[in-house]
Design a protein around this nucleic acid. Sequence first.
DNA 1: CCAATGATTGCCT
DNA 2: GGCAATCATTGGC
Length: 218
Amino acid sequence: MAMTELITKEKQFLASLKVLNENFYQRKDVVKIAKELLGKVIVTFFDNGLTAVRITETEAYNGIVDKASHAYNNRRTKRTEVMYAPGGAAYVYLCYGIHHLFNVVTNLKDVPHAVLIRAAEPIIGIDAMLQRTHKKKLDNTLTAGPGNVSKALGIYTLHTGIDLKSEHFFIADDGYKLSKNNIIATPRIGVDYAAEDALLPYRFFIKGNAYVSGKKSS
DNA sequence: CCAATGATTGCCT
DNA sequence: GGCAATCATTGGC
């Protein structure tokens, strides 16, 4: 699909975006970055066409001191190696043998911080997302939950390591503003194994948004 | 409504 | 061999 095939609305939307760069990703406070990613836009432009979503839920993973992190205790494997890259790369891994989970690598090289994208709100390319997920109609399950976000956007483990300023895969600011009292913080999901670190309030979501995984509160 | 379960691969012990 | 940053389905209330 070429740019010339995009309808006017899509072109105008793309023109309104400011792609996030290393000044955003390579800061030291991964918790702050996780909060600031709420409301930002993920764009993918793969074979099924242009798709864009607004991030509604994230989780921060605080590197080598965080027992919930894949990089806890400086663990390096083929899978986790990309977490040690400079901030701004994609970390995509397979969870439970089935789901592709998309994370944003943050901080400087050799500091393995990451933010998991847990849910988002569809903006552009609903049809392409329905096609990828084999769903019939739009509802809040299309992009709620990290596995579903990746599936709707066409993100797979083969995209791990990609620069999130790429032409076909990037995160941007479209000017959407979110006030602090519209952000809810809770403990992270599915990390009970992480002992005391499982209690840290490192999960963030937009208050009242329908596109959030698990329990909501308002 | 909610809890239990199967799917299925990478990485650990 | 066992478990994991999950999801859809099933079966019980």
